[in-house]
Design a binder for these strands. Structure first.
Length: 586
RNA sequence: UGGGGCGUCGUCCAGUGGUAGGACACAAGCCUUUGGAGCUUGGUACCUAGGUUCGAAUCCUAGCGCCCCAGCCA
């Protein structure tokens, strides 16, 4: 008889066969396949504008689009919607390609650019003019706005709306030829100036922009707007399901209008909620501002919610994929707690990161009864979660460094690490008792004098006595020095946009988002660790080697802290509450 | 204000007429040579008010609240 299984439609637990999480978009596709819409084809795409670096929110979209194509044996395209030469750069194109690949999405040979469709888009515009559905308008930008009306009042028709087909054709051709200055004319669709949907009030299809495009160079001086480009680009590529975020829901009638007027393949647009994360800003414009104004060290600063930043910080793409499938997809405007992302990161790192001992803030310890010249090799487990990771030897000697936080001269209640007269276990080594505290002239603790029990090699006492605490250590003569960069949230508020009248979101920047700790002491086995390598510093957190590392001086980024029960108790004792408010640095 | 969208534990997501479930977070406990990991247990969540029904988170009606739209940005 088999054990009854728990039935649940949600995320499978680790070890279960990965079952895609159900959501409304997936349901729509399932129905479309069943009804043989599009001949049962599933073809999605990720359509970024190359005007910035990809952030966590894009990861959600990529995961959704690629995941759907993959699940249903369909195709996934990467297409750049590069319709605004004023904001776009090759640098962004290159970085986006890297990031999408890093996340594991595969577009095979289908890397496209809306700019490659400019000629077709132009021909379609001519077709619309010929059908009397588009006209050249001489109104200025300000006038266009005035004529558009407001949310509650209908707009007025442009005086140029009645231009004849031939005149429109000639004018549009001259726009392309460069006969007119920027902003002097536009090509507009002739739809309905009284529509309650502002997108239908004769939207602009083409604007004059004498600007060099990162890909088409100076071939064009008129550029199609996003609204005129996006839907048709999807159509050209045979996209079946055009998945986008909620704010484009209002635009769908317009995209449908273009498709119908042109009589071309009709992709189905489906809108979902964009990602919002606590303590995090996911707006390209604001992220750009943080970089430009020097609030962070660059797009790949580990505090940035960019994919580049995440990677440098040590977040894995596996963790991201898990995160994306756990948050689900819906149309609710929600905010995901950062804790969930961190959980996914820890979950992945716990399985893969090699354990190592490192002391961030060293306190010198001399073991008085340990022979001066003796060095022992202690065997340490590389990863208790992975038997295949094996073991390593860690040198042990008379002088060690331990973490300053692991000693309290006057231990508070509940603190059971080292203190005068107390015995603790040195991980993988011996039991050790603190005998004396050495201070400098100003009363700072500079050294601990301790004794060890030679009978406890490996960590267990033959007499069976127990010790409350196990602490990490590094042998002083063998230690390597390193720099550690400890990160906290970039903003102090769950919602960084919550500001008072007249204030800017930068007021919420966390002054303690980066703490640099120099002269950390680390195990010798770390010598030569490659940039990007992931480790767990036992009892401290996950760390990864930063590319700033130089031979002889490693730099580590703290990817995530470990759960710190003692810190939580202590915060509670200080009456700060366990969960709310700003988190902590170390 | 016109239009579009959305309201289920603290948070996110399921449940689409038949005992409201999962994850994260939180709390308590177990275990532990990482105060890690793991394991166990816990909690008055269906926006409100009417209605239909034997039975409503699901259907109907009326409210209320939140988000988006007035770029020649995407």
């Amino acid at each position: 008889m088999t054990t009854p299984q728990k039935i649940s439609g949600s995320t499978p637990r680790a070890g279960d066969s990965p079952r895609p999480k159900s959501h409304f978009i997936r349901d729509i596709i399932l129905r479309d396949i069943e009804s043989n819409k599009n001949g049962g084809r599933v073809h999605t795409r990720f359509p970024p504008e190359p005007n910035g670096y990809l952030h966590y929110g894009h990861a959600k979209s990529i995961h959704l689009n690629f995941g759907l194509a993959k699940e249903f044996g369909g195709k996934f395209n990467l297409r750049f919607d590069d319709t605004n030469p004023l904001k776009e750069e090759m640098e962004y194109i290159e970085s986006i390609i890297e990031d999408v690949r890093w996340l594991g999405a595969d577009w095979e040979d289908r890397l496209f650019y809306a700019s490659d469709y400019f000629e077709q888009l132009y021909a379609w515009a001519v077709q619309l003019i010929q059908a009397g559905k588009a006209y050249v308008c001489d109104l200025t930008a300000d006038q266009v706005r005035e004529y558009r009306g407001t949310l509650s009042q209908p707009g007025r028709e442009s005086p140029f709306r009645g231009r004849g087909v031939e005149e429109n054709l000639a004018l549009f051709e001259r726009m392309r030829a460069g006969d007119f200055p920027d902003g002097s004319r536009t090509l507009r669709a002739k739809i309905d100036m009284a529509s309650p949907n502002l997108n239908m009030r004769d939207p602009i299809l083409y604007r004059i922009l004498h600007a060099e495009h990162p890909r088409s160079g100076n071939k064009w001086c008129i550029y199609p707007t996003y609204d005129y480009t996006h839907g048709q680009s999807d159509s050209i590529e045979g996209i079946t399901h055009s998945i986008c975020t909620l704010e484009f829901e209002d635009h769908r009638p317009l995209y449908d209008w273009f498709i119908e007027q042109l009589g071309i393949h009709h992709p189905q647009q489906i809108e979902f909620d964009r990602l919002n994360l606590t303590y995090t800003l996911l707006s390209k414009r604001k992220l750009l501002q943080l970089v430009r104004d020097g609030h962070v060290r660059g797009w790949d600063d580990p505090r940035m919610p960019t994919l580049k930043g995440a990677r440098r910080r040590g977040y894995t793409s596996e963790a991201f994929r898990e995160f994306c499938s756990r948050i689900g997809v819906s149309k609710t405007n929600g905010v995901i707690e950062l804790a969930l992302l961190e959980h996914c990161v820890r979950e992945d790192l716990n399985k893969r990161a090699l354990r190592v001992m490192a002391v961030l803030r060293p306190l010198r310890v001399v073991i008085e009864n340990y022979p001066e010249d003796l060095v022992e090799e202690m065997e340490a487990v590389n990863n208790p979660e992975d038997a295949n990771a094996g073991t390593r030897k860690v040198p042990f000697s008379r002088v060690l460094y331990i973490e300053r936080d692991d000693f309290r001269e006057d231990p508070p209640k509940g603190f059971y690490r080292l203190s005068p007269g107390r015995e603790v276990r040195l991980r993988y080594a011996y039991m050790m008792t603190c005998r004396d505290v050495i201070k400098d002239a100003s009363g700072n603790i500079v050294e601990l004098r301790c004794t060890y029990d030679p009978e406890t090699r490996g960590g267990n006492a033959p007499d069976g006595r127990k010790v409350k605490s196990t602490i990490h250590w590094v042998s002083a003569p063998h230690a390597l020095e390193a720099e550690a960069r400890l990160y906290d949230t970039l903003f102090t508020k769950e919602d960084p946009n919550e500001v008072q009248e007249g204030e800017d979101f930068t007021i919420n920047l966390n002054p303690n988002s980066l703490e640099i700790v120099e002269r950390c002491k680390i195990e010798p086995c770390l010598a030569g660790a490659a940039a990007g390598s992931l480790y767990q510093f036992e009892r401290l957190g996950y760390f990864c080697v930063d590319p700033d590392s130089k031979p002889g001086k490693l730099v580590f980024n703290r990817t995530a802290t470990l759960r710190d029960t003692w810190a939580k108790i202590e915060r509670k004792q200080k009456g700060q509450g366990g969960s709310k408010g700003l988190r902590y640095c170390t």
